[in-house]
């Protein structure tokens, strides 16, 4: 083994060691019973409090697994920069792991990302390239791809929209946790589509445990919406990891209804939700109304703390 090879191997082992320590702060989130927004006999709703992880959102799971798999395979080393496009939460999750493990990070973020996200990424030391606010993360992905093409030696392009480590984090983590926390009684899983990793991975994982489980996907009802991270698939670039055969049913959620749930969840359940978390809960409540019996589980991706502007905008309109 040459000195350079030896150095690289030691670097890789050090990175994996650092990540191993951080793995204790990913997943294993509480399952919260929704009992005041909903109390229909025979139908229960539970929600995973996904903000109780390193980085404060559900994206801890895929971001960690993407980094872990890339380091393990030798694609991401201390010499390379981790590169991806994000609307924010995955970027923040990458940034906390990168800061703690000593990985250099470059993120492509649409310019209209919330101010809190911008501040967090700056504080965490990420290099941020702002992209067109007209094009959302579709445009940010194009910029990231071009950066990678122009200098493939410098970057490891994580490509969360097409990386199997994204949905597998939920297959091996979220789905198993839900199964254990409900003692195998979960009958319906419902979640919004963004990168589609949560729905695809959790859905596949639960179906492997119970082939009869019902999987319901959620989308915003309009292309211009306020559900950060969600995709209106008809008008967006569909992620490569999306499994269009998985869902038993598709429901659509209006931003206004999600914000109404956001308001009520705080007042009645003590849950201060992000708009997309509130949209998942809106979908779960609508589904509960249709059922006579069942155990519905959804995920609450993050809390309200990164959405001050848009929540104020909603409150001003009320």
């Amino acid at each position: 083994m040459t000195a350079q090879q030896n150095f690289k191997q030691e670097g890789s082992a050090a990175l994996l060691g650092a990540l191993e320590e951080l793995s204790h702060y990913v997943g294993n989130t509480p399952l919260y019973p929704i009992t005041r927004l909903h109390n229909k006999p025979g139908v229960r709703i539970y929600a995973k409090l996904e903000w109780e992880q390193f980085g404060g959102s559900v994206k801890a799971r895929p971001a960690f697994n993407i980094i872990w798999e890339a380091v393990k395979s030798g694609e991401l080393t201390q010499e390379k920069r981790l590169l991806d496009a994000s609307s924010g939460n995955t970027g923040i999750a990458y940034a906390v792991f990168a800061a703690a493990a000593g990985i250099k990070l470059t993120l492509c973020i649409p310019e209209n990302a919330s101010k809190e996200r911008k501040h967090l990424l700056k504080a965490l030391g990420a290099e941020v390239i702002y992209t067109s606010p007209f094009e959302g993360t579709d445009g940010a992905q194009a910029v990231a791809k071009e950066l990678y093409r122009s200098n493939p030696e410098l970057y490891y392009y994580a490509d969360q929209y097409n990386n199997d480590a994204n949905w597998k984090a939920h297959f091996n983590g979220t789905a198993q946790e839900i199964w254990a926390q409900t003692n195998g009684t979960v009958s319906h899983f419902i979640a919004g589509l963004g990168t589609t990793g949560t729905f695809t991975g959790t859905g596949r994982g639960l179906r492997a445990l119970n082939k009869d489980i019902q999987l319901i996907s959620l989308q915003p009802e309009s292309p211009l919406h306020a559900l950060e991270g969600w995709k209106h698939l008809e008008t967006a670039v569909v992620p490569g990891i999306f499994d269009d055969q998985l869902a038993d049913k598709h429901l659509f959620v209006s931003s206004d209804k999600a914000f109404e749930t956001l308001r009520k969840a705080a007042l009645l359940e003590g849950l201060t939700l992000s708009p997309s978390a509130a949209a998942n809960l809106t979908g779960a409540l609508a589904l509960a109304n249709e059922l006579d019996k069942g155990v519905i589980v959804t995920v609450l991706a993050d809390d309200h703390s990164k959405y001050t502007d848009i929540i104020e905008e909603y409150n001003a309109r009320r």
């Binding site: 609307s87 990302a113 211009l224 950060e228 967006a236």
Partner: peptide, 12 residues
């Protein structure tokens, strides 16, 4: 006149 989505991630 520019029409801009209120959020960054909604379209991807």
């Amino acid at each position: 006149i520019s029409i801009i989505p209120a959020i960054a991630g909604g379209i991807a």
